[in-house]
Design a protein around this nucleic acid. Structure first.
Lengths: 196, 196
DNA sequence: CCTTTTTGTGAGTAACCGATCACACACAAT
DNA sequence: ATTGTGTGTGATCGGTTACTCACAAAAAGG
């Protein structure tokens, strides 16, 4: 391609198509999981043919892993941004990151559901398991580096995140039962630092 | 049926068949999730025809909900039994129930995976969501009634359970990385009561 | 023995799924 | 203009899926 001649281009580059494909795939995988999501529907949402989908991602599995990595990146970015904000404002990074996660889950439900589906299917698809392990490794790394929390505190913090995930998935916040009020009350953050 | 003439019966009752069907369905749903689990494979494992499967459970969805309820019952029974044991031995019920859950997850992996798949798909299948809500209601009830833990303690306890689920699903215990050592170290129990 | 109910199956059906292949069009460089 | 390369699709294939229906055998009741 010439250096500065991208004036009128009707075709997209493969990388651009892969990007739109991932964005189209996330909500479909989120709703129906790996086995339930048809590649035809993903291709249609992306506005391309199913045949071209399989050229850009040779197998459905690779596309699913790409969708997982995408939702992991969203979380990672959200955490680092929260840590930056906490450093600038002199607040507790772990607490700010917890609040950021609460908001992220609230207005990015698809990312959460992709994570849950990936966790469930990871035991039978090695590539998914590997992606999820790397995901947790990266998330733990940023949490450990940007805060001065002890391993025990980090453990409780991650556990709280897992609870938020499940409660959001089953819509516990819509219920009035006491168990739902207790387990799904994140009161703006997800810090589980015990109140003495 | 005559009162006491069950001597030689070659055919099973419908209820017996439903039982064996559920037992055959659990591992299949556990491995592939709702959409990925074929009814043909479940029927074959149960030793009956697929046609008869659909007479005993008119839809695949009903069979999946039955599998969920089954795995919920296993957890519930495990908890009540642990609470009984704790009462008899004068131990902390919450702690004993935590240990019981750790063992349960270890040697009943299928139950755990059915739970994870059900959580993930609950947002798109109302009957599954309802089953999962009832599941948590029942589990919270037994935990609240059999222990004297505060809502905050119960919340942290449940959060720890969710972390155990995810770490077990991705096999974090097989890894040597520090994040895995920290997050997947249940050291015999899953009580998250903070160490002061 | 005869009738009714329950247990059980072989053989489908219509739709759908992941993946493939030949082929067409757009682009950039020679 | 030609050539080579990257972008994109229609048609289709072999296999699988949830679910159905006609039909048979066993059991229970009389």
């Amino acid at each position: 391609m010439s250096k500065a001649a991208e004036k009128t281009r009707t075709l997209s580059t493969a990388e651009e198509r892969r990007e739109t494909l991932i964005r189209a795939a996330v909500p479909v995988f989120a709703e129906k999981g790996y086995h339930g999501a048809p590649t035809t529907e993903i291709a249609k949402r992306a506005g391309i043919s199913q045949a071209y989908l399989f050229r850009l991602f040779p197998t459905k599995e690779e596309l699913f892993v790409a969708a997982i990595d995408r939702s992991c990146k969203v979380m990672h970015d959200s955490f680092t941004e929260a840590a930056d904000r906490a450093d600038a404002d002199g607040l507790d990074p772990l607490e700010v990151m917890g609040e950021a996660y609460g908001e992220l889950v609230l207005n990015n439900r698809e990312m959460l559901l992709v994570q849950l589906h990936a966790q469930a299917i990871s035991s039978s698809i090695p590539a998914v398991r590997e992606a999820m392990r790397e995901n947790f490794a990266g998330l733990y790394a940023v949490a450990a580096e940007r805060t001065n929390a002890s391993p025990e505190e980090l453990k409780v913090w991650f556990a709280g995140g897992m609870l938020i995930n499940v409660m959001t998935a089953i819509g516990a916040n819509e219920l009035d039962q006491p168990w739902a009020k207790t387990l799904a009350d994140f009161e703006g953050d997800c810090s589980f630092t015990p109140i003495p």
